[in-house]
Design a protein around this nucleic acid. Structure first.
Lengths: 147, 147
DNA sequence: TTGTTATTGCAATTAATTTGCAATAACAAT
DNA sequence: ATTGTTATTGCAAATTAATTGCAATAACAA
């Protein structure tokens, strides 16, 4: 499997755009952690590593990373968007505790059947989906029950 | 079944807050259309009906409407949040065309099984979920294929 | 090496949402 | 009904995420 950087270079070339060290740094940072992130957090992570890349460059890179299939938007929370790497990751759903914020990721095999069925019924060409659950994690559920 | 207004009054009383004609107008407008909405759209709909209610009041009412179980956030798009009435509505998923924006709603029975299975496996107390599909609707899919 | 122009960082802008404040009004107690 | 307390309102100002204009820089094709 080719690396995220290679995927990005191909995409950029195909579009007649230019690759830059800034964009490669952003991609490397995202794929060194393999977890969801938001712009501010990514900016701070890179700053910790002495990177001087501006937030504007991150904001400008994001649509390219999405278009090239490296990342996607996952949810809007705390007043801003959150993203996660998808290239090289299997599609997964989120189970999020509304009390402590804990997020568990898991793969739901049944979704493929649902998508097949729904595609046929609706005639939509379904390209992506989002399945997120919210509730109380075991610990927070106990704490709520005590009150 | 009691009306959305009654549900809201109960909630407001239980919290020691005060009900107002502004909030009742907002609720009536939302439940007269029974479809998803955003703040600006709701504000304009009410303005058309000669209502003088300010946007600030709508923004301040929304957390109360969510807490009382009348509406919920559905997605963040075009730079702002979208909501939909849930009281008296069966839980449904969205199928959205990424080209023309068309949204189809449907009920996915299989979700109940998935939730049961997942609750047992994770020990989470699952309270809500969101299942959204994106892709091309039949018309837009044809148009894209032609290019 | 050179020329074109995409990309950068910075600062200013935009747009959604929140908040401070003084006036108003809901509602419990009288 | 009247009154007092204080939640709610509308307005305008503030806040915050995200976008954009601009001049300087740098990618990359020729």
């Amino acid at each position: 499997m080719i690396s995220p950087l290679e995927v990005f270079r191909k995409y950029i070339n195909g579009k007649g755009l230019r690759n830059t060290p800034e964009r490669e740094t952003i991609i490397m940072e995202i794929f060194s952690v393999h977890d969801h992130f938001d712009v501010d957090e990514l900016f701070l992570r890179m700053k910790d590593q002495k990177s001087k890349i501006s937030k504007a460059s991150i904001y400008r890179a994001i649509p390219l990373l999405i278009e090239s299939g490296l990342i996607k938007e996952v949810f809007f929370e705390d007043g801003h968007l959150h993203y996660e790497p998808i290239y090289g990751h299997s599609h997964h759903c989120h189970l999020r505790c509304i009390r402590c914020g804990k997020v568990i990721e898991f793969v739901e095999e049944e979704m493929n059947n649902i998508i097949d069925r729904l595609s046929k019924k609706s005639n939509f060409n379904i390209l992506d989906h989002r399945l997120d659950f919210t509730g109380y994690c075991p610990e927070c559920n106990e704490k709520s029950a005590l009150k």
